[in-house]
């Protein structure tokens, strides 16, 4: 046994962890080797000093502090219901979520909030009764204003303004009162612009459910001189199946200066009306106005 291996075993020797054959060998070597004995002495001194360095008494606070901590810990366990916000928060805090996942979750949460918010707003009751009443009042006021505008504009010297006035009839939503109808019929009969008259006829046709309008239209036949308006009126008569217009139409035929096409058109109309055959629905009456003032391409289907 050499000195190097001996010194490697000193720690084991001192801590009593050297197994038996080595232990005896070491003791034997130490007996004959002064340098190893000196080394052992030095190491032993350190080892003994280590042994002297006792652990201090725990301070009197240590035990109470431990039991306070234990009680505190217990209180976080026991009374908590399964799903408390506090518990959920703690669970979330303790969850080890990687940053990108956290960000993704946050974005998704925001998206969800947006979607839910939007859905909720969309599904809210449209208006409260008070709002609805207010709206109705406002609509009525706007209607009245349009009526006033119509009545004012219809006497305007400019044909364009008069056309505009006639176009308001549609926006009155059938709520035209007698004053408006009179104004329109008078325009139909006396306006000196063919386009305005045609537009007025187009505006009045949907209102034909009103007997005043119907009668006004029948009487208008005799007043018209423009072939365009004449044939348009004849069309309307056929559409309305208005038999009362037959004498008027026949009277019109007797006029000396009647346009050729209008003449045949009126004859056709008279025949349709007297045979009682309903006007073919497929042949929608063509537009008679030369300008395209109205955005609507077709006449509304007539109710009668």
């Amino acid at each position: 046994m050499n000195c190097e291996s001996t010194q490697d075993q000193l720690a084991d020797y001192m801590s009593g962890q050297l197994p038996e054959p080595e232990h005896s060998e070491l003791v034997a070597h130490l007996a004959g080797c002064t340098s190893c004995r000196a080394e052992l002495e030095a190491v032993q001194r350190v080892w003994r000093t280590l042994g002297k360095a006792t652990t201090p008494e725990p301070s009197p606070n240590l035990r109470p502090e431990f039991y306070a901590m234990l009680a505190d810990f217990k209180s976080t366990l026991a009374p908590e219901p399964k799903y408390s916000p506090k518990g959920l928060w703690r669970w979330l805090r303790e969850l080890q979520i990687p940053q990108p996942a956290l960000r993704l979750a946050y974005s998704l949460a925001l998206l969800l909030v947006g979607a839910v918010g939007g859905y909720w707003l969309n599904n809210q009751p449209k208006t409260t009764p008070a709002d609805q009443q207010q709206l109705a009042t406002l609509a009525a006021q706007v209607g009245e204003m349009r009526q006033v505008m119509l009545l004012t504009l219809i006497d305007n010297p400019s044909a364009t303004e008069r056309l505009r006035a006639v176009s308001y009839t549609k926006e009155l939503d059938g709520a035209a009162d007698a004053k408006v109808i009179n104004a329109l019929l008078s325009t139909l009969n006396h306006d000196d612009n063919v386009n305005v008259r045609l537009a007025t006829l187009e505006a009045l046709a949907p209102l034909a459910a009103d007997p005043t309008v119907r009668l006004g239209l029948v009487h208008a036949l005799a007043q018209q001189e423009s072939p365009l308006v004449q044939s348009a009126l004849a069309d309307v008569m056929v559409q309305l199946q208005e038999h009362r217009s037959l004498p008027q139409l026949r009277a019109l035929l007797k006029q000396a200066n009647l346009d050729g096409t209008v003449k045949s058109k009126i004859e056709e109309s008279i025949q349709t009306l007297s045979t009682g055959r309903p006007a073919a629905p497929a042949t929608t009456p063509q537009r008679h106005d030369q300008t395209h003032v109205f955005p609507r391409a077709e006449r509304p289907a007539l109710a009668v």
């Binding site: 652990t55 201090p56 725990p58 240590l62 035990r63 431990f66 234990l70 217990k74 366990l77």
Partner: peptide, 20 residues
């Protein structure tokens, strides 16, 4: 968790020594 008290009594000195 109360049983931790007994474990504390048994081991806190040794643990204190180690940390100390």
């Amino acid at each position: 968790v109360d049983r931790m008290g007994l474990l504390f009594e048994r081991h806190h000195r040794a643990l204190l020594g180690f940390l100390y």
